[in-house]
Simulated assay, not measured.
Amino acid sequence: MSTLPLIFIDGDQGTTGLQIHERLRARQDLRVLTLPAAERKDAQRRAEAINSADIALLCLPDAAAREAVAMISNPRVRVIDASSAHRTSPDWVYGFPEMAAGQAEAIATALRVSNPGCYPTGAIALLRPLVQAGLVPADYPLNIHAVSGYSGGGRAQVEQYEGAEAAHAAPFVTYGLGLQHKHPPEMQLHAGLSQRPLFVPSYGAFRQGIVLTIALQSRLLPAQASLERLRATLQAHYDGAHYVTVLDAAQSESTTQLDPTRHNHSNQMSLGVFGHAGHGHILLCAVFDNLGKGASGAAVQNLDLMLTR
């Protein structure tokens, strides 16, 4: 009998599940279990599979993820949930290793890990260190804007842009106009905000990648919150991080545009602080792959941490 850890991917045919499966397919240090099409909706077979696993990766809609967790009777089964079902639950460890000191260790030893949302990954990466340092007030009236590739909408949106009707797909779409998107509570909690941020998401006619921006007014910030201080605080927080880098002053000065596809097919994320002192304007920016650091890459990063325990 193999002693290699068994990883069950529940929902391996979705966008995130397919990417995770692809990243794990050639690994020699673990075994991957998926269910054939005829068994994917068989509750008994799913329960057997999830309870046989060392770690279960849930790539499911929220309701189905909760259902899958309820199926677990084996106390040794550990879970990484890629849905948004448990991202604000106090009983789950938030799966953003670089978020805070000790977070990677908490993930490594956890039974239940909730993978971050794609947009919250960028927003929290930028805001949490600055809020904790007292440079951005917790009640700052934040407006967060983000543009993602169409794969962020899942299989249906991928088919819309890559299928027979692709010629009729919109080149750019802003959505969530009712301001009830599911991500702001996650952003608020894990960034340490006291108020819900206003979030405006969009997607364009490119497959994957994200540019997320947060505009700040210097007059609404503490006196010590200069552009240089904000950048230095982020650089100190992510110093030594393997997957997160912060543009230095020279890099920022030479950067005139941000390409959302820059980190596609990787788990890398770049953070930048731009601004104009005369206008009192500061722009925080994050660039990463919504299918990488924003989804499957983050899940595999968390999986690798959990496999160390």
Rank of each mutant, 00 (worst) to 15 (best):
K41M: 10
A108C: 02
A295K: 01
A133M: 07
V200E: 08
S252P: 05
L126G: 01
L220R: 15
G149A: 11
P141N: 10
A223N: 03
L220I: 03
T245R: 14
I72W: 03
V113P: 09
H183Q: 14
E228H: 12
S218A: 14
L258Q: 00
F96K: 12
F274Q: 01
H86N: 13
T233G: 04
I124M: 12
G278R: 13
A169C: 11
R78V: 04
G152D: 06
G134P: 05
F172A: 14
A277K: 11
V131S: 11
D42K: 05
P222C: 07
D81Y: 08
V136Q: 09
A225M: 05
Y238A: 06
L212W: 01
M306H: 09
G117H: 03
S266K: 05
S270W: 12
Y243G: 05
M99L: 15
E159M: 03
S270C: 01
L220S: 09
L60A: 04
D81I: 02
E67S: 15
F288I: 02
A156H: 11
A286L: 07
S148T: 11
I20C: 09
D259N: 15
E39R: 14
A295F: 10
I214A: 05
R262M: 10
T109G: 10
Q180E: 15
N302W: 08
I124R: 02
P5T: 12
R25M: 10
E159F: 03
F199H: 08
L127G: 08
P116E: 05
G14V: 08
H279P: 00
I7E: 03
V287L: 00
G163C: 01
S73E: 14
L30K: 09
W92I: 12
V287D: 04
L193P: 09
Q257T: 14
G122I: 06
L212I: 07
D62C: 06
L142M: 03
V211D: 05
A225Y: 06
R196W: 09
N51H: 14
C285H: 05
L33S: 12
T16K: 01
Q19D: 13
A170E: 14
D62E: 13
S148R: 02
E162G: 09
E186S: 04
L179R: 13
D29C: 08
I7Y: 08
R207L: 08
A250Y: 01
S254I: 00
S83E: 07
Q19C: 13
V69G: 00
A26G: 11
T3S: 15
M1V: 13
D54G: 05
H145A: 13
G209Q: 12
F206G: 03
F206Y: 14
L33P: 02
E48W: 08
A68H: 09
R229F: 00
G153I: 08
A236Y: 00
V158T: 08
G95E: 02
